[in-house]
Nucleic acid binder design. Structure first.
Length: 322
DNA sequence: TGGACATCGCATAGGT
DNA sequence: ACCTATGCGT
DNA sequence: GTCCA
């Protein structure tokens, strides 16, 4: 039997990781979200190259790669390093800020505050800090508590088990309810980072109370939901667990009226690239497409009523796609 | 050369 | 008490 | 940081 082999890794994964690291620094430390996105875009362009980049001519002209990033890649090719990245790595404060943002609910603003004002230098220090409970809000304390668990991917088989429980209990509440797990799971991924559930019901008036009912049932009756991060009339964010032998997982549940359901299904199944592509095609065909509806765009930019959609197929048909 | 870079629900902080 | 701005995750 | 009007 042949040796077990890693699934073919990208030939430029080291360079891609470097660009992601530069991106994270801009987002978390410099608080430049657009630079973060620029680095991510460059990285995703490079991820599409299927051979090892040998020279700068291999990447010149690639989407999202301009003068500065090209120069950094040149540095990387000739020296194996990127100066800017080495400088960032030498910044202990920056490294601490980056660490803090691993906690769900701690973003760039709060991470900077914790490090600069409270002089906290690591997750461990945050965990053992005497004023921890005053420094962090409810969500952040939850994030700190589950930090290591949330960083683990969820195997497809585990999500399959969750799907059975979720669908059974949701239809038990009301047999007119329809629910699906979307995101990378619906795209067939072998592992996902969270669980994203879409729910719909034909009667619009029921929707707000519906989400609360679902959350209450899954929490109190089945102990499937273990924590609530936030919950309103249309979106729940929280934590779930199949049973105590398994890890805690991030779960979102969204409720949509039936006329919006298929646009939402399409949008939340993704991926981002397909969503962008479809929005562009929509625009070209004189439509506006988002997670709620597809509308015709008039000559003056006026929008029509949302067009009737009773399946994902309908959306593709409007756009003459297959 | 300078503005755009997606959008929005929810929690919380800050202000009146 | 109420309204608005900000942060966060998506 | 990159793109584009």
């Amino acid at each position: 039997m042949a040796a077990k082999r890693k699934l073919a890794e990208n030939p430029n994964s080291e360079l891609i990781d470097f660009l992601h690291e530069l991106a994270d620094y801009e987002k978390n430390v410099s608080r430049m979200i657009h630079k973060y996105n620029a680095y991510r875009k460059a990285a995703s362009s490079i991820a599409k190259i299927d051979h090892k980049i040998q020279s700068i001519t291999d990447i010149k002209g690639l989407e999202g790669i301009g003068k500065k990033i090209a120069a950094k890649i040149e540095q990387y090719l000739s020296t194996g390093k990127i100066k800017k990245l080495e400088t960032n790595r030498g910044d202990e404060t920056g490294a601490a800020i980056n660490q803090m943002t691993r906690v769900m609910g701690i973003g760039p603003a709060h991470a900077n505050k914790l490090v600069h004002q409270e002089k906290i230098k690591s997750i461990d220090e945050l965990r053992s800090h005497p004023k921890r409970d005053q420094l962090l809000n409810k969500t952040q304390l939850l994030g700190l508590n589950y930090l290591e668990e949330f960083e683990q991917k969820i195997p497809r088989d585990e999500i399959k088990q969750m799907e059975i429980i979720l669908l059974r209990e949701i239809t038990a509440i009301d047999n007119q309810l329809r629910a699906e797990i979307v995101g990378s799971y619906r795209r067939g991924a072998t592992a996902s980072s969270d669980i994203d559930v879409l729910v719909t019901h034909p009667t619009v008036a029921k929707l707000p109370s519906l989400l609360h009912k679902i959350v209450e049932t899954l929490t109190k009756q089945f102990h499937f939901i273990t924590d609530t991060i936030s919950v309103g009339d249309s979106k729940f964010m929280g934590v779930c667990q199949i049973d105590t032998s398994k890890l805690h997982r991030r779960i979102d549940i969204r409720v949509f009226p039936s006329e919006q359901y298929y646009c939402a299904l399409l949008y939340f199944t993704g991926n981002d690239q397909l969503n962008r592509h479809m929005r562009i095609v929509a625009q070209e065909q004189g439509y506006k497409l988002n997670e709620y509806s597809i509308q015709k765009v008039g000559s003056t930019g006026t929008l029509s009523k949302p067009l009737p959609v009773t399946s994902e197929r309908d959306i593709f048909d409007y756009l003459q796609m297959d």
